[in-house]
Structure formats: C-alpha cells, structure tokens
Design a protein around this nucleic acid. Structure first.
Length: 292
DNA sequence: ACCCCGACCTGAGGGC
DNA sequence: TGCCCTCAGGTCGGGG
C-alpha cells in the first residue's frame, strides 16, 4: 500500500495515540518479517517520545535511547482501537468494538489510550529496534535521498541527481537515493502531470522538464496527502477509513481507459518489473517544445 | 558506480 | 468448484 502519502497518513493517525504514551503491553507474533522482529520484552514498558517519518519508514523514538523502525512493505497497515471511554483523538475512530486478532496481525501495541495492531499479509514490512544514535549511519537509512516535501528537494538537486543516469526516468523517480517516498503510483502520476514520457533516459531530462517534474512530484504527493492517500485493494488508514486519492488517478491503473485530458487510451508497460501507465499523447517520447 | 534481475511473501482475480 | 497463472502500493543483495 504505502508510498509517502499513505505512510504519513498512518503516522499522523498513530501519533496522538502513541506520543508520550507508555507501551504497557506489546505482543510480537511474527518472529520475522523482512528481518527478525524484536522481542516484545525489548519494547514493553518503554515510552514513545516522538513519532517521525523518514522516507517510507515510521520512526518511534523510545525513552531507552532506541528507535523502533517501522516499514509497511507492500501490504502493511495499522488498525487502531481506542479504549472505551478514551476521549477521541482529532481523527475520527470508526472501528469499534475491536474484532478478534486476524491472520497476519504481527504486532500489537497497547497504551493507556488504545490498542494498535500491525498487520502485513506479505511480510515485506519491517519492525526493527536500533540505537537512536546509530540512525544516521544505519544501512537502511544512510543512503536515502532528500524528502520530497522538504526544502532540501529543489529542482537543482533533483536535476543533478539525474546526470549520468541512463535508466529511464520512471524507475529513477522510484530510486530512493534520488528522492524518497515516490512509489509506483505517484511516479506514474507525477510524470503524467509533468508531460514527460516515463521511458525518457534520466540524463536526457532537460532542466526545464526537471523543474516541471519536481513541481509535479510535490503537487501529487501533497494532494494525495490531503486525501489520506490511495486505497487499492486493502489499504486503509488506521481508523479503518479509506483514502481517496485513487479517485484522482489520471493514469495509474487506467490502462485502456481514455486520457482525461486528451481522450487517447492510456497505455501500460513494464519498467524495472513494475507496471507504468502513461498517455502517449500527453507524454510524447520526443521532447516537444512549448508544452505548458 | 551504475544497472538489471531475482528473491522475499501471501492473496485476489481471471481463464480454462 | 478448483487449479494454475499472473499480478499487486517495496526493497535488498548479487552479479555483470
């Protein structure tokens, strides 16, 4: 499910239920996800001091000098269930009473406010406890590029990252050393918005195109974030509500349907073993002059 | 240093 | 109904 808007939506929903709260009970049911999971005894009793996001990771800073690194993989999600009588958080909490534990509920965190369940059918996700002091040099984090919604991500920084790259721009957009948080949906959507063909070699993107693509990435991610991300199949916000950006898709998952801008059928191809969607008319392969 | 590809998993959906 | 194939929002590590 999770690209930046979905992960950030998840973080925003979890934060009021976790920050400042003690993990009174922790149950770890899967010994291994992408990597071995930490024992519950290493987490239980600790207090969450802050909940941050870096790329598609959620970082729960704990009061023993460690951080729980959380990744949702392809199919991970949280569900939250407030305790009865607990004042509602700013987000409406729709699922109550809580159902029995489900298949693939791999971790359960209980605070004074709520029960939070981490579920991930495909187990590409991650729960990893590391020393907070080691975060910057940790192999999973040290090579990450700029956050797309931060001032560090500028057209010039982006342009420089494309130089020398023969790889097509679409898989490059998904390369986290270039920019983080952009996955398969938002890569296709951003390229459509910028009018750039996804097969264009990255190094052939001229500065003007790069500036448009930079703006498109920011716009698409921000728009998706305001709509709670995209719900395909089973993704949901921790409250159980769906996101709504899927109703705004211009190309993703629309193969054969007509382009909403020009009426040309949307095309689908495979790049780096992932589906890419694009409009051959709005996103011509040859660089065209004068397109808005 | 870059680039490509397989691997890691489960489940849903389509074709026969 | 059931089997078999393909596909799915991500990332890592090995080899060229």
């Amino acid at each position: 499910m999770p690209e930046l808007p979905e992960v950030e939506t998840t973080r925003l929903c979890l934060a009021p239920l976790l920050v400042g709260q003690r993990l009174a009970e922790v149950e770890i049911r899967a010994p291994k996800l992408r990597q071995a999971t930490p024992a519950a005894s290493l987490l239980q009793g600790l207090t969450v001091q802050a909940l941050e996001r870096r790329a598609k990771y959620i970082l729960a800073h704990l009061d023993d000098g460690s951080t729980l690194l959380i990744h949702l993989g392809m199919s991970g999600r949280f569900s939250v269930f407030p305790h009865q009588g607990v004042a509602q958080t700013p987000t409406r909490l729709s699922k109550y009473p809580k159902p029995p534990l489900a298949k693939h509920d791999h971790a359960i965190f209980t605070t004074d406010l709520a029960e939070l369940r981490y579920n991930d059918p495909r187990r590409f996700g991650l729960l990893l406890k590391i020393n907070t002091a080691d975060l910057a040099t940790h192999p999973l984090l040290k090579n990450l590029g700029p956050e797309p919604l931060s001032p560090a991500f500028t057209p010039k920084v982006f342009y420089n990252a494309l130089q020398g790259k023969t790889t097509a721009i679409k898989p490059t957009l998904m390369n986290p050393t270039v920019v983080v948080g952009v996955g398969n949906i938002y890569a296709s959507e951003s390229l459509f918005l910028a009018g750039i063909n996804p097969a264009t070699p990255s190094k052939n993107i001229i500065l003007a195109q790069c500036t448009r693509l930079h703006a498109a990435v920011v716009k698409v991610l921000e728009h998706a974030l305001t709509l709670g991300g995209s719900t395909l199949r089973d993704y949901q916000q921790p409250t159980g509500e769906a996101g709504h950006f899927q109703d705004e898709f211009r190309v993703y998952d629309r193969a054969g349907q007509l382009c909403l801008t020009c009426g040309t059928p949307i095309q689908q191809m495979v790049q780096a073993q992932r589906s890419t969607y694009w409009c051959p008319s709005c996103q011509p392969l040859k660089p065209t002059r004068g397109r808005a």
